[in-house]
Design a protein around this nucleic acid. Structure first.
Lengths: 137, 137
DNA sequence: GTAACTGCAAAATATTTGCATCCTT
DNA sequence: AAGGATGCAAATATTTTGCAGTTAC
């Protein structure tokens, strides 16, 4: 786990087992993780509450972000390129596979959206559902 | 104005007080409604559980649809033009106001999104957050 | 040593299920 | 009359909060 401590340090977080481990899960995962995923992955190593608090802390620091999913479950993802580089941009495309349930962070850019007069955007999320590469065979 | 009862009838639902009233809330609302909104609007006229079941029924029939929101709360909306006409298309743009919390269904079209090879889309949701017309003043 | 983090217990919320009763057709 | 819908009670599930003990720095 080389750069993990660096990421925590850079965000002024103390380096603890749970933070290292949970951040590692994100770095190793293709896609997004839900609270329940992390609970499963960790066995019963960490308390439920610690996971909630760790996720919340990571979101506040901009290390991970929440993803709006069409099934309205709560998922989190670290978008590798951006976050390792230490800055965070706000336009994301996410892909949610209907078959395997995996959520991917895609690299495509979000196209501009026409808003009504008087409306201004601070963030645009695009969530595409369908079949991912693995499930198309 | 299509009658509320017609919409229910067309979807082979029996016409009950709660269904008429809840559907009416959607027809009268600019935006999307959460379970809690409906509970408030109805006073204590309907049971919590009835609202859950009614919303679920409406979603199954395609009268309303869920909206993925960036704050991961569960909201529902009826997109007037589509649903009154009795057909339902799957590409939506929604706008969530950071200030007042209102969710709007916009009429703009969803731009095409470039997916990786092997991926196919069944549905695309676009969720824009920011300030709505009313809160920009 | 001090401030921050974790685990446990418990409270607060949200959602689902079973069943008896009531209403729509 | 029959089937479906509702209301109530209660079971589950999810998330938040308080606090005491532990750990990082």
């Amino acid at each position: 786990m080389a750069g993990i401590s660096d990421i925590l340090k850079r965000n002024q977080l103390s380096i603890t087992d749970s933070r290292k481990k949970i951040l590692d899960y994100f770095l190793q995962s293709d896609g997004a993780l839900a609270h329940a995923d992390i609970e499963k992955m960790s066995g019963d190593k960490f308390d439920r509450v610690t996971i909630y608090r760790t996720l919340q802390t990571f979101v506040e620091k901009g290390i991970i972000h929440t993803i709006p999913t069409s099934d309205n479950s709560v998922k989190y993802a670290l978008c590798k390129d951006e976050c390792v580089a230490g800055h965070h941009h706000d336009d994301h495309i996410h892909f949610l596979c209907d078959d395997c349930g995996t959520t991917y962070c895609l690299e495509s850019n979000v196209p501009p959206v026409q808003l009504p007069i008087g409306f201004s955007a601070s963030r645009t999320d695009v969530v595409v559902s369908g079949k991912c590469g693995k499930c198309s065979n």
